Computed example of a mutant assay.
Amino acid sequence: MSQPASRYSRITGTGSYLPPERLTNEALAQRLARDGIETSDEWIVERTGIRARHFAAAGVAASDLAVEAARHALEAAGRKAEEIDLIIVATSTPDMVFPSTACIVQRKLGAFGGAAFDVQAVCSGFVYGTAVADSMIRGGLATRALVIGAEVFSRILDFKDRTTCVLFGDGAGAVVLEASDTPGILASELHADGRHVEILCVPGTVSGGQVLGDPLLKMDGQAVFKLAVGVLESAARAVLAKAGRNDADIDWLIPHQANIRIMQSTAKKLKLPAEKLVVTVDQHGNTSAASIPLALDVAVRQGRVQRGDTVMLEGVGGGFTWGAVLLDF
């Protein structure tokens, strides 16, 4: 009896969307100054590499950004929404407590019937979602998936804390992941360490119609930096080993766009030249789960990432979560 053909998954289309309002460091500094908070373009750029970010207008939800990114990805893949049988949305800023933002996206796209759910791994969310979708496609539970990262972090920022409010922005990125008889996703690696919950969190919840705790983002920047550099390197090396590849095989490194110093440090540890590092943090800020698919789509549409290139995606975020995906684009 012949063996069944191997089943893999490949990215067939990418898309992204940024809200129209672009806020430069200077404009944000002026806004903060009205409340007596001092910062400057120089201070922000020196510490983070960020020069601008986008904020969603009042009434615009994560699902709205996700739908626009998904439509662009579907167009790039040459697919219609009704051909999708799995939607995974990675987000820390969902539209509602429930149902999932993915179900809301499904309704807005008209892609009914397939599975739809959210993944909550903060800035690692897109890596987590991609790994889950890949596993479901390989296992026959799905054939064509939308994996989306979408965030409206501007809604959970403490604008009295200049060390955090200058870092984040809103946006969405998406990929269409389809079953294939040739490998696309080569290997994935996912991890978490709950001992570090407090270093990056929003310590609030809803109970009895009231917010309990603090609904605004809290971060120990130095602790996050120290952990991030180490775990990103280890995750990258783990997926390379699983795939039987090495540092020299990486054509593009697309890390979570949190801080230029973390990104450059990771590239250096992998012996990658600066020109192989995709950087969008300067224009987008940290868009959490949206940052990796946003950066991927930018690089694809600019003609840098091309078919056949080997791409490393990696993220680290609150939880403390981290992971990496190696793929042939």
Rank of each mutant, 00 (worst) to 15 (best):
I137N: 10
A121V: 04
A121L: 10
G113S: 08
E68T: 15
R138A: 02
V119P: 07
L86W: 08
S63F: 04
A57G: 12
T101A: 12
I104H: 11
G125Y: 08
S135G: 07
L109S: 01
T91Y: 06
A142E: 09
E83H: 05
F126W: 00
I148K: 03
E68Y: 05
I137G: 01
L141F: 15
G139F: 14
R138P: 01
T130F: 00
K108L: 15
R138L: 04
G139Y: 11
G59L: 11
V147F: 07
V67H: 03
D134R: 05
A81S: 12
R144Q: 07
M96L: 13
S124V: 00
F98V: 12
A61T: 14
F98P: 04
V105D: 14
F112K: 13
A102K: 06
I148P: 03
A90L: 14
I84D: 08
F98K: 05
S135Y: 04
T143E: 11
R144D: 07
L146I: 06
E68G: 04
G114E: 12
G140D: 13
V89P: 04
T93W: 14
G114N: 13
F126K: 03
L141C: 12
F126R: 02
G125Q: 06
D134P: 12
G139P: 09
A111D: 07
A61I: 02
V67L: 02
E83K: 07
Q106W: 04
V97H: 03
A131T: 10
A73Q: 05
S100N: 01
Q106G: 07
A111E: 10
A131K: 09
L74H: 07
F112C: 06
A145S: 13
V147P: 08
I87V: 03
L109R: 02
L141D: 14
K108N: 13
E82D: 15
A133V: 05
A102S: 09
G129H: 11
A142P: 11
A57C: 00
K108S: 07
T93F: 14
A61S: 03
E75N: 14
A69R: 08
F126G: 12
Q120E: 09
V147G: 04
Q106E: 12
A121F: 00
L65Y: 02
V122M: 02
I88C: 11
A131G: 10
A61K: 05
R138M: 01
T143C: 04
D134H: 13
A69Q: 11
Y128W: 11
V60Y: 02
K108V: 01
F98C: 08
V89Y: 09
G114R: 13
A61P: 01
G139K: 13
T101Q: 10
T130E: 01
L65G: 00
D85P: 09
A73N: 04
F98E: 03
M96W: 07
A115Y: 10
R107A: 15
R71C: 14
V97M: 14
T143W: 02
G113I: 01
V89Q: 09
D118Q: 13
Q120P: 03
T93I: 01
L141Y: 15
D85E: 12
A76G: 06
V147H: 04
E75G: 13
A111G: 02
F112I: 13
D118P: 10
